[in-house]
């Protein structure tokens, strides 16, 4: 299928980008990495007469970490840059791992974290880790900006609460507390390159006595949207995390998923792997949380 014809706008500021969006309203799409958008236009018949590129908007690729503010990922920051940012590698290992193993080096050099979220694929690799870390999106439109919790962001496959005239300016991720461990595990049929068939992210935060103060578990590719495992989180919070409890909590994650059979895996395989990966992730989180302050 041939690429449809369109005009490309390359604004230098967010204000110009917002103006272009509202001026062209219906037939307009935002372009960042292009790895999803151009494929949908060439192969899936997605049409837009105007593309507004975010790639020359000043400051939109910035990635910054400070203990006081946590992590701020600019709306056009590339997956590869996020994955190898020292602050991400040190404080957000689950996100660093997702950003460094998903897709291919070329796609990671092009694609953005914001695009990965906004496209709202159930299998989006950055979604589960960012859910575990309690991330929010900062969405701007001409009237102002709002913060959307990632856990309220997804509405279904390819659907989110982002309005057509909004741009994701940044993703904000709180700084992880002391005695915190986090991890992400994914499975796909063809090593990393293929889209994830199952992804599990977790975070464990211990109190001074070594009990679980806070637990977050999130699943990708096993429901219409990335989902949290509230039951498993509640089983662990307030408890002393021995191995038997981690195994039970990991097993309970299966009740939070609603997988389907598709080309990448059967629903039964996905259910079995949710348990295995959740247990692995919890063990890794505990080891990291017990291992040190970072």
């Amino acid at each position: 299928m041939a690429m449809p014809h369109f005009t490309v706008h390359q604004p230098k500021t967010l204000e110009q980008a917002l103006d272009l969006l509202s001026r062209h309203r219906s037939g307009v799409k935002l372009l960042a990495g292009g790895t999803d958008l151009l494929m949908k236009m060439r192969q899936a018949g997605l049409k837009a007469e105007h593309l507004v590129s975010l790639n020359r908007v000043e400051g939109l690729r910035t990635i910054s970490y400070r203990d006081e503010d946590g992590l701020v990922i600019g709306g056009a920051a590339r997956l590869a840059d996020v994955g190898r940012h020292p602050g991400v590698a040190q404080h957000y290992p689950a996100l660093a791992h997702a950003c460094s193993v998903m897709a291919t080096p070329q796609i990671r050099n092009m694609g953005t974290v914001a695009g990965n979220l906004v496209n709202a694929a159930p299998s989006a690799d950055t979604a589960a880790p960012l859910l575990a870390y309690g991330a929010s999106l900062v969405a701007v439109e001409r009237g102002g900006r709002r913060q959307i919790k990632l856990q309220d962001f997804f509405r279904g496959p390819g659907l989110s609460v982002l309005e057509p005239l909004e741009i994701v300016e940044a993703i904000r991720v709180p700084a992880p507390p002391a005695r915190c461990g986090s991890a992400y595990e994914r499975l796909s049929a063809r090593s990393q390159v293929d889209i994830a068939a199952v992804g599990v992210a977790g975070l464990l935060n211990l109190d001074l006595e070594g009990r679980v103060l806070r637990c977050r578990l999130a699943l990708g590719a096993v429901a219409p949207t990335p989902v949290r495992c509230l039951e498993a989180e509640q089983m662990l919070e307030g408890q002393a995390p021995d191995e038997a409890l981690l195994m039970r909590a990991g097993a309970s994650c299966v009740r939070s998923c609603q997988p389907i059979d598709d080309v990448r895996a059967s629903a039964a395989f996905r259910r079995a792997m949710v348990q295995v990966l959740a247990q692995r992730v919890l063990k890794r989180c505990l080891a990291l949380a017990q291992g040190g302050a970072s």
Binding site: V8, G34, Q106
Partner: peptide
């Protein structure tokens, strides 16, 4: 940086 030039618009390489 390595990129797929089939998914990069020429105008973006200006």
């Amino acid at each position: 940086r390595s990129v797929s030039s089939c998914l990069t618009l020429a105008v973006e390489a200006h």
